[in-house]
């Protein structure tokens, strides 16, 4: 299990989202944030500054 998000950061982000958790819920959810952090690291890479921001998605037909 990867290391979870630090407690303070987790609490801050949950508060920012406007959600109130019990202490038990907070610990249970924070317990899996290590996977989330691994995902976040995984999608970041050194890319050219002008890399296409990819905010628009459309399948491309073969040959077009």
């Amino acid at each position: 299990m990867p290391d979870p998000m630090p407690e303070e950061e987790f609490a801050l982000l949950v508060t920012r989202a406007g959600i109130r958790l019990t202490a038990e819920e907070a610990e249970r959810i924070r317990g899996v944030t290590g996977h989330l952090l691994a995902y976040m690291r995984s999608v970041r890479a050194d890319r050219p500054l002008d890399a296409e921001p990819a905010t628009i998605f459309r399948p491309v037909e073969p040959g077009r």
Binding site: A17, V32, T33, M40, V43, R44, A45, P53, A54, T55
Partner: peptide, 17 residues
């Protein structure tokens, strides 16, 4: 709740990936 921890930068990085 986990979803609420994902930032706009995370989202755009995921779309680039």
């Amino acid at each position: 709740v986990l979803c609420g921890l994902v930032s706009a930068a995370d989202y755009l990085a995921a779309q680039r990936r």
